[in-house]
Computed example of a mutant assay.
Amino acid sequence: MIKNLFVYNQKGISINKKSIHKLIHYLKQELNFVINNLEINFVNPETILEINKNYLNHNYYTDVIAFNYSEENNNLDGEIFICNEIAKENSKIYRVNYEDELKRLVIHGILHLIGYNDKIPAERKKMKLKEDSLVKKTKKLGDILK
């Protein structure tokens, strides 16, 4: 288990927390960062909508939100919120494995925390290529669903 990494899930959401720790351990080595404090929260659509409204002034559902509280991209202090139900819907829309979609969202959140951005098309393309590469590399780590 990684010190300073906390994985939470709302009632009714089953997550293999040990596998999340393995995934983050791999990403730490691959992307060269340390964790000061990191929370990864698996939440329902109502919670992600509330967070999106209250903190980002967006009135819509989303799959992942990351908050970076650090001034340094290689010393993580932040929170990631992932909506399982939206991840499940997206896996059907994009015809990908649900497990892979959840891993992609964890990876997406970490990439945001280390400085990647997806606001403009060129940055979004760069981030998506990195995500795709990391999802492929992490297939061997095991399932993150119970």
Rank of each mutant, 00 (worst) to 15 (best):
E79W: 01
K22E: 15
L102V: 06
I20K: 00
I120A: 04
N41M: 00
V7W: 01
E39F: 09
E79I: 06
K17Y: 05
P121I: 11
D63I: 13
Y94A: 02
V106N: 03
I80E: 02
S70H: 10
G109P: 07
K130L: 10
N52D: 14
K53V: 15
S14I: 04
F42E: 10
Q10G: 04
K88I: 09
R95K: 13
I86H: 00
G12S: 08
D132Y: 04
I48C: 07
K18H: 06
C83G: 03
H112T: 03
N74L: 09
D143W: 00
I93R: 08
S70F: 13
N4I: 05
R95A: 13
N4S: 13
N32I: 10
I107E: 04
Y61K: 11
T62S: 14
H108Y: 09
E72Y: 15
S19D: 10
H108S: 09
E30V: 01
L76R: 01
R95W: 03
E50N: 13
L76E: 03
R104K: 13
I2V: 11
K137Q: 15
Y116G: 05
I2L: 14
I144D: 07
D63H: 08
P45W: 02
F81Q: 01
D132L: 08
V135W: 03
N9L: 00
L105Y: 04
E123R: 06
L5V: 02
I82F: 03
N54Y: 08
L102I: 12
I13V: 09
N74Y: 14
A122P: 00
V64D: 08
L113A: 08
F81N: 06
L23I: 10
I82Y: 00
